[in-house]
Amino acid sequence: MLLASLLFATAHLSLPSEAAALTKEQVEAQSAYDSALADFNKVLAERRAQIDGKKKLPTRPGQALYLARVKVMSTYKDLTDAIPERIGRPNKFNVPPAYFDAAIEPLIQEYADLFRVLQAPPANAQDSKTPFKDVVDLGTVIARAEGLNPTTAQKAGEISLGLFYAETNGRQNIGNARSKTYMGSLQTGTSENAKGARKWAAVKAKVRKLDPQLAARDDAEEKRAKGIDQRYNHWIAVRNGLMNAHADLFGQIPEIVKMVPDDIDQMKLFELIQIIPTPTRAALASGDFENYRITDPKIMGYLRNNAVFTFGKKDRAKKSATYREILDGMWLFDDKFKRAQKKYEEVKAGTAG
């Protein structure tokens, strides 16, 4: 009832006082947003009732929640495009105000709370007491195995922590409420996990020479994870995820830093290796990364499914984009990567595990 009351208040108090002066486009934009907000509230309440009542959930219980949130942000962006005066105050989620009405913060908090329940790790998941340090250590040693010196390899540790935040918000061993394929601390599928394990086995001897203590930890985690889906062992999930998608590019970090000097953009680039690996590698090999253009509708669809060019009619109408435009369009990742940078500094200072 609290959510419903809040929705009613925000939906109706948001109407401009001079409604009669609105154009047809503005009235339609307001109506679309109010409808999206009502739908969002409905699915939030429905999923909460199912969880609290211990009722059977849909196969992908987070998908309807996700689509409803996207629709709210999309229609609000259309509304602020039509009525710029509707752009309000900053919000605690650091979403640009043109995409999000701060008055509905409690609804978005409820959304996040529901996903925390829906994506909770299984009972046999194997947590780490030092999940952030693990990510940094693994990324760093993998980069060293790829030929980087100890100082340069630290960048791989920082980027790896950014990937952990991008994929799971820094939560270890989570499931996936929108997919039955991807899970764990780096959200990998079974084939990706297996490929990463094979690639790790090929460099394990080198790792043992570089860092005997880390190799011993790895031996212990391998033994610990026997008999479970290893994607639910934090250490192994991160190790295999990084080896599968990113290890070879870690060796190219000096060249990548020259092409993409901004730290946040570097994290975005490596996240794009998760989302659209083939065109991103082609862009890197082109010699003109930022101006490399994506035109394939399927690739644009993958981007939209990962919150890039997703919100509002103007973004959704884009049929192509350069990598510079894609990096700029990944603004929803900015807050995650900034939190990862802060956590990285804590790990290096020994104040976070």
Rank of each mutant, 00 (worst) to 15 (best):
N91Q: 11
N91P: 02
K92N: 10
K92H: 12
N94K: 13
P96D: 13
A98S: 04
Y99W: 04
F100G: 01
F100S: 03
D101Q: 06
D101L: 12
A102Y: 12
A102D: 13
A102R: 07
E105Y: 05
L107N: 06
L107F: 13
Q109P: 00
Q109A: 14
E110Q: 15
A112E: 13
D113P: 04
D113F: 11
L114N: 10
F115P: 05
F115M: 03
R116W: 10
V117S: 12
L118R: 10
L118T: 04
A120L: 08
A120I: 01
P122E: 02
P122I: 09
A123S: 10
N124V: 05
N124R: 07
A125Q: 04
Q126I: 12
S128Y: 10
S128A: 08
K129E: 11
K129Y: 05
K129I: 05
T130G: 00
T130P: 00
T130S: 09
P131C: 01
P131K: 02
V135Y: 03
V136M: 01
D137P: 03
D137L: 09
D137C: 05
L138S: 06
L138R: 06
G139S: 11
T140H: 15
T140N: 11
V141D: 03
I142V: 13
R144K: 08
R144S: 00
A145S: 15
E146H: 08
L148H: 00
L148F: 06
N149Q: 09
N149C: 03
P150C: 02
T151Q: 14
A153Y: 03
I159V: 13
I159Q: 06
I159L: 15
S160Q: 09
S160M: 11
L161E: 07
L161F: 00
L161Q: 03
G162H: 10
G162E: 01
L163E: 15
A166V: 02
E167P: 08
T168L: 07
N169H: 13
R171M: 10
N173L: 05
N173K: 02
A177D: 04
R178I: 10
R178F: 00
R178P: 00
S179R: 06
S179W: 10
K180E: 10
K180M: 07
T181I: 13
Y182H: 09
G184T: 05
G184K: 10
G184F: 02
L186Q: 12
L186M: 15
Q187I: 08
T188F: 11
T188H: 11
T190S: 15
S191L: 11
S191Y: 12
N193S: 15
A194Q: 15
A194M: 10
A194E: 15
K195G: 06
G196K: 02
A197E: 15
R198N: 14
R198I: 05
R198L: 14
K199A: 08
W200S: 06
A201F: 08
A202F: 11
A202H: 11
A205D: 15
K206I: 02
K206Y: 12
V207Q: 07
V207W: 12
V207K: 02
R208H: 14
